[in-house]
C-alpha cells in the first residue's frame, strides 16, 4: 500500500525546466523557437498537470491538446525528449529535471504542441474504408445477435484498442519520407477488420488498399511504431502477418 503519511522531506520538490517548441503558423511573423519554463514539481505530476500550470500561471497563449487526461482518448501525443508519448500519462518523476517538448512531426501543425491528427486520421479511414463491410445492408435488430467465439471477440478488441494518437506514425521511418504512407495505425485497422468474421472483404480487397509502397510494402520493418505504441498493440506481428498475406496475393 502507498505510504499515506508522506514524510516532510517529500514536500521539497525539484524545479523542472520545460523547454517547449513555440510556433504559431496562423500568426504572421511567428518563427519556431524553443522557450523555457520553470516550475516546481508536485507529487504525481504528469505533463498534463505541468502544462496546464504553465498555461494558467505563466503563459496563457501556450497551445496543446488534452481531452480525457487519463490516457484513453489519444489527444495529447507529443515528442517528450525526442520520443512520441501520451503527455497525460507521462509522470515528470520518470524524467530528469530538463524536459524538451516538441509537437508530433508528420501531422499538420496547429500551433506549439497542438497538431491536427484528427484530419489525417479521417483521411486514412476514408482511404482504407475502416468500417465493417457486413453481409447485409440492414440487420433485424429485434432478433438475437449473430454469434461469435469469445476468443475471436477478444482478438478483435485487442486491435480495436488503438486510440489513433499518431505516435506510431510520428516514429515511423517511412512516414518521414512518404507523406502518403498509411502507417502502423492503418495496418492495425486492416488487421482488425481482417480478423472480423462479420467483414466480407477478402485479401484481394485489402490488397487494393494496402498492397503497394504507400501500404505494407513501404514498411522498412524498423518497427519504432511497435516500441512507442502507448496501448502496446501487437503491431510487429500484425504488420509482418499482413505483409506475408499481401505478398501472397500480389
Amino acid at each position: 500500500m502507498p505510504d499515506s503519511n508522506a514524510p516532510a522531506e517529500a514536500l521539497r520538490h525539484r524545479f523542472l525546466t520545460l523547454e517547449i517548441l513555440r510556433y504559431n503558423p496562423q500568426e504572421a511573423g511567428s518563427l519556431p523557437r524553443l522557450q523555457s519554463y520553470r516550475i516546481e514539481e508536485a507529487d504525481g505530476m504528469t505533463l498534463f498537470i505541468a502544462l496546464n500550470e504553465i498555461r494558467t500561471r505563466q503563459d496563457p497563449t501556450l497551445q496543446f491538446d488534452f481531452v480525457c487526461r487519463a490516457g484513453i482518448c489519444g489527444s495529447c501525443a507529443m515528442m517528450v525528449n525526442g520520443r512520441p508519448r501520451l503527455a497525460c500519462r507521462t509522470l515528470t518523476l520518470d524524467y530528469p529535471d530538463h524536459i524538451t517538448l516538441t509537437p508530433l512531426p508528420f501531422f499538420e501543425l496547429i500551433g506549439d504542441l497542438s497538431v491536427n491528427t484528427g484530419k489525417w486520421m479521417r483521411g486514412m479511414s476514408e482511404r482504407l474504408a475502416t468500417w465493417l463491410h457486413g453481409r447485409e445492408e440492414t440487420v433485424d435488430v429485434t432478433r438475437i445477435e449473430e454469434r461469435m467465439e469469445p476468443e475471436v471477440a477478444e482478438a478483435i478488441y485487442e486491435m480495436d484498442r488503438c486510440v489513433e494518437c499518431g505516435c506510431c506514425v510520428a516514429a515511423c521511418g517511412t512516414a518521414q519520407m512518404r507523406e502518403d504512407f498509411v502507417g502502423a495505425v492503418g495496418f492495425g485497422k486492416i488487421a482488425r477488420f481482417r480478423l472480423d468474421p462479420r467483414d466480407t472483404r477478402t485479401d484481394d480487397d485489402f490488397y487494393e488498399v494496402i498492397g503497394d509502397d504507400r501500404g505494407v510494402f513501404g514498411c522498412m520493418s524498423l518497427l519504432a511504431c511497435h516500441d512507442v505504441c502507448p496501448k502496446n498493440l501487437p503491431l510487429q506481428t500484425q504488420i509482418a502477418f499482413l505483409r506475408r498475406k499481401m505478398a501472397m496475393v500480389g
Binding site: 457486413g134 449473430e146 467465439e149 471477440a153 477478444e154
Partner: peptide, 9 residues
C-alpha cells in the same frame, strides 16, 4: 454488433 463492435461474448 452488426456494425462491428467487438462485444465480449
Amino acid at each position: 454488433a452488426a456494425w462491428g463492435t467487438p462485444w465480449s461474448r
